[in-house]
Nucleic acid binder design. Structure first.
Lengths: 414, 414
DNA sequence: TACACCTCTGAATCTTCCA
DNA sequence: CTGGAAGATTCAGAGGTGT
């Protein structure tokens, strides 16, 4: 399935006016920060209610600039849509007044705190380590996908899943059956995502490479997009810069619209979206760190196995320290986005010039073959199910098989 | 040495006007929040009831209320003094406008985020987990004691401990001795305190609780007082409620002045000062890490499995997110020095009072039972071989059996 | 529509029990 | 008796329900 990613060069004010009303499901706004100090004062007599018009700002253009564009964004947002407005601390209160005025106070949903660790400086005072994102919806009936986090480590998860009732004195107690056993209240998913997000900042080197000082981590955009939209929805970024939002939207199968006043920014965005080579360099942008993370994920499935990691070969994850049938044994873990036959093809390709060797594949997904298969015999790749795969097969809850699959180690020849 | 703690009953507006100018070093302001709610609570023994209405007809009257009092606070604050204003999310932008106006934008120091974990609720959207504290100083020359936190685990401590100098092109490089060794920079203190503070919420069970609504943890006030004052300085809390600020100030040897409109609050404050109770808690003293007690090795074997870690029960490593046969499923990983039957005994013991549940054990050692065993049928514990165990059995090189063992998942009854 | 009351929840303590 | 492990308890939001 294809998703569109449209880009426009120009002032988003004009382009927003040309867009059909209620045509967008999510707007992520990350405008150029107001770097000069914002000076403001309020009416001394307190006789008027505060609104953004009551603020005197030295350079009045910033509040006006933001107000005009937010008003248009409100128009193009669908009834179930949301806006996430990214602020820095110098003007967040001004932005919030404007949002309150356009979207109304009732539709204020959250003040999200993006918390990150940063290199310290010698400034007197507290080290700034957060930015604020305001989350407003257009109406009460907004689209929202709940995500869950781990419980606090101090929580007694095993006990709070017991059913509770109120006794005759209206005190909360654990419910028990007639014979005194506690009653389970079902399983748990975790705690709902909070409004404080700890997401690492892009490291300074990655920042240098792309050249956009305010570029946001893809993880941050991922989270916002997944919270407020479903696949096929439309995401708008009116100050798209290097196009991080559009890239994230594409990876998550959302349509996207990016606007930027700089034609260089739009060109860069287009390149990243259209040229498959540039798109794959998104991985580079996430940083070598992200790549290492990916490789590390694979190695996690090798815990307890005595092996030497192989770093410089994409088809091989490790070399077993123990020989098998007097042959060296190479191992590869099936990746998340990889069918088992692809895993096997990958390790075969990488070892074809290595002479006689034994190949081991750790299967992690549910496309593990039948145990009834008679491929056992003629095989040259040893396939071992991961712990998680063995478990999921036994629980039988997997979607891609009517009966529970029972993976066990098997020799395959593909 | 004695420190004074004075308390006054009444509207702080009047009392502030009677105070000498520039006589206070720190003001902590925690006014009734701008919410349309009635706060009420009783003390543990039920002897006193508190309630107040946080109702303001519109933004404006609240702003007016705050403005008038902040203006007076500015007067009584000394030249090196600071104000910390505690807001909740509903009115923080209004408070900041007023503070900007009275103290001026140049004296805005920080937007402090107090981040805490709390019980969840069924709210659609993000779970609120922070409150905001604005930090303004009266002048540029404000009193500030720098505190340090531990370095984040990812920081390269060796590197920052190296001495740095400028080379001939004025570039910063690490200094080296003649024979090329790096030079230590002495001990580092840590990262300067950031503007995001993770301090546990005052728990419902804490003895520190006196039954006053919106009571703040002493730890939070400790931090503020230590940052902005020295011993013998004067701390003012114009909405002192149950007197947390005065308790903290007394423990830190600062003079304090507390004002509250409720005479019950002032009485409670006086009582508390006689016998200050500060919760000593594992979480406060040792941090969340203290709870992460379960074997790290165990979690490594659960990679790829959808589960919640269980920290406070020695016999259980995790709770599967998916139910099994409509029952909650607990999991335990076999430890290195543990026979399989011991593992099974441990999880059985820990869950014996938990009502009906499914038990899963991840076997990691070679004492896995024969597949030929007929124990299969009568069992209540599901045993799954770890990846490494599956592999080692297939390679047949294990020391404790002549023939290769072939583990597969099995139900056991021991 | 307004409001009182009930239900559900989980963080982190208090309390008990057992070895 | 003591210390640690695990069960019991509290209470503030938010939604739901009934009057």
């Amino acid at each position: 399935m294809g998703v569109n990613a449209k880009t426009y060069t120009g002032d988003c004010l004009n382009l927003l006016m040309d867009m059909p009303p209620e045509s967008v499901d999510l707007i992520y706004v990350d405008p150029p920060f107001f770097t000069q100090k914002v000076h403001s004062s309020v009416t001394r007599d307190g006789s008027q209610a505060f609104s953004f018009r009551d603020i005197w700002i030295n350079d009045n253009s910033y509040a006006d600039f933001v107000y005009q564009r937010i008003a248009r964004m409100h128009d193009v947002l669908s009834g179930t849509g949301s806006i996430f407005f990214h602020c820095d601390k110098s003007a967040s209160h001004i932005v919030r007044l404007i949002l309150d005025s356009v979207f109304s106070t009732e539709n204020f949903r959250s003040e999200i705190v993006w918390h990150f660790k940063r290199w310290s400086n010698s400034k007197k005072g507290l080290l700034s380590a957060h930015q604020t994102i305001f989350f407003y919806s257009k109406t009460d009936d907004f689209k929202f996908n709940t995500f869950y986090q781990e419980y606090s480590p101090s929580t007694n998860i095993d006990q709070i899943m017991q059913k509770r009732v109120r006794d005759d004195r209206n005190k909360s107690v654990y419910a028990r059956t007639d014979d005194g056993a506690v009653i389970s209240n079902g399983s748990k998913k975790g705690v709902p995502l909070s409004d404080v997000w700890e997401i690492p900042f892009l490291n300074p080197k990655a920042k240098e490479r792309v050249g956009y000082p305010t570029q946001k981590p893809v993880r941050l955009l991922n989270q916002i997009i997944k919270l407020a939209t479903d696949e096929g929805d439309v995401v708008l970024d009116p100050f798209c810069g290097s196009g991080t939002t559009l890239v994230a939207a594409q990876l998550l199968k959302r349509h996207s619209i990016g606007i930027d006043i700089s034609s260089e920014a739009i060109k860069l965005t287009k390149d990243r979206l259209q040229d498959p080579i540039v798109t794959s360099s998104v991985l580079l942008e996430k940083g070598a760190k992200a790549y290492r993370q990916y490789a590390k994920d694979a190695s996690k499935h090798l815990v307890g196995i005595d092996y030497l990691p192989v770093h410089r070969n994409k088809g091989i994850d490790g070399l077993l320290k123990q020989e098998v049938n007097n042959l060296p044994a190479f191992v590869r873990v099936q990746r998340d986005c990889e069918a088992l036959h692809e895993t096997i093809a990958a390790i075969k390709k990488s070892t074809k010039d290595k002479g006689a060797c034994c190949l081991v594949v750790i299967a992690t997904l549910n496309d593990f073959p039948d145990q009834g298969s008679d491929r056992h015999s003629s095989s040259d790749v040893l396939v071992i199910p991961s712990t998680a795969l063995s478990l999921s097969a036994h629980l039988g809850g997997d979607p891609n098989g009517g009966r529970p699959q029972r993976p066990e180690a098997a020799y395959l020849d593909i």
